[in-house]
Amino acid sequence: MSEVTAQELEILSTKVIAAKEAAYCPYSKFRVGACLLTTSGEFVVGANVENAAYPVGTCAERVAIGTAVVAGHKEFKALAVATDVKPAGSPCGMCRQFIREFTNPSFPVYMYDKDGGYKIMTMDELLPDSFGPEHLSST
């Protein structure tokens, strides 16, 4: 997997922080933005969308991935997630498995805090010994 360039990281950073503004979170007040960098160089954003029936809400990461997949993208170079807390929030367990469906253990996830600082972790660090589509039998 190719590394994220400085220019791509700058764009990813700007877009993920801006994506928080689109969050619909009247209940938790916990804004989350996500931005995927596709292997073709496109950026796809998402934000969390809550619902009065709490389990029905959707996390920013899954919104971004779903949007990207519907647009025909299934290969990604990096994912960024931004929250309004410090230290930076990481993807929830459900999102970690969802992200893993379209990535591999070395895939980088950039997690931005309220001040714009970030931490990078791989999917293997976020979801050790993960299960992905390559583990399914083709028969």
Rank of each mutant, 00 (worst) to 15 (best):
A22M: 05
K86G: 07
A53L: 14
A47R: 11
T83K: 11
A6Q: 15
V56P: 04
F102I: 06
V63W: 00
T38K: 10
V32D: 05
C25Q: 04
G93S: 13
P87F: 01
P108R: 10
K114E: 13
E21N: 09
Y24R: 06
A23K: 11
E21C: 05
Y54I: 04
S13M: 09
P133R: 12
A71V: 01
V69K: 08
N48M: 06
G33F: 01
A6F: 00
P133C: 09
G116Q: 14
P105L: 02
R31L: 04
A22D: 07
V56N: 07
N51W: 04
C25V: 09
G116K: 09
G117Q: 13
I65K: 01
S90H: 01
R100E: 05
S90F: 06
E101C: 05
M123G: 06
G93R: 15
E10S: 12
P55Q: 07
G57L: 15
F107G: 09
T58N: 13
E101F: 05
A18I: 00
L36W: 08
P26S: 00
T139M: 02
A34I: 07
N48L: 03
T5W: 03
Y110Q: 04
G66A: 01
E61A: 14
A80H: 05
A88Q: 04
C95N: 10
K74Q: 10
S2R: 02
S106E: 15
I120G: 11
C95M: 13
T122A: 14
T67D: 08
M94Y: 11
E21Y: 04
A82T: 11
P26Q: 09
I65E: 02
G89A: 10
P133M: 11
V49A: 04
I120V: 15
M94E: 08
L12G: 02
M1K: 12
C35N: 01
L79E: 12
E10I: 03
V44S: 10
Y110W: 08
G132P: 05
T38Q: 06
C95S: 13
A80R: 12
V45A: 02
F76R: 15
A78N: 02
S138W: 11
Y118E: 10
C95R: 07
L136V: 13
T83M: 06
P91R: 14
A88M: 05
C25W: 01
E75C: 10
A88H: 00
T39L: 06
